[in-house]
Design a protein around this nucleic acid. Structure first.
Length: 120
DNA sequence: GACCTGACGCCCC
DNA sequence: AGGGGCGCCAGGT
């Protein structure tokens, strides 16, 4: 359904994958977080790995991307070492009111945001 | 042009 | 329940 819709869209447009990831990432509300898997699931392009790959390169496109709101499925800040400083990701999240404990987002299930909430 | 790697995630043992 | 393996797709070497 929606996945198909996205698939068509991506095949029609299919810029660079990270542009799509960039879109979703920018839509994540402040104080909320999403996961690589959720983004991959919403885009229906296949794998969460690619989302990570995309975010790895997105900073060269636009450093304003709130990539700090994207964590792995456990709520862990797995990508923090790829920021300017390893602590930057955590600092930004805390600034938005997200509590971090041991590089894990506290109460992650509650703060988790799925792109599906946009209503397609 | 083939092979390896990657900010992950699920299935299988 | 925990650990290991495979799949995913694109880019770089």
């Amino acid at each position: 359904m929606a996945e198909k819709k996205w698939k068509e869209k991506k095949e029609a447009a299919s810029p660079h994958y990270f542009d799509l990831v960039y879109d979703i990432t920018c839509l994540v509300p402040e104080g909320r977080v999403t996961t690589y898997g959720a983004i991959a699931d919403y885009l229906a392009l296949g794998s969460a790995r690619m989302v990570g790959w995309a975010l790895n390169h997105c900073h060269s496109q636009d450093t304003t991307i709130p990539a700090h709101r994207v964590v792995n499925r456990k709520g862990e800040l797995s990508g923090r070492m790829h920021f300017a400083t390893p602590s930057l990701m955590q600092e930004r999240l805390e600034k938005e009111g997200v509590e971090i404990r041991n590089d894990i987002v506290c109460d992650f299930p509650t703060l988790f945001w799925h792109p599906r909430e946009l209503g397609y």
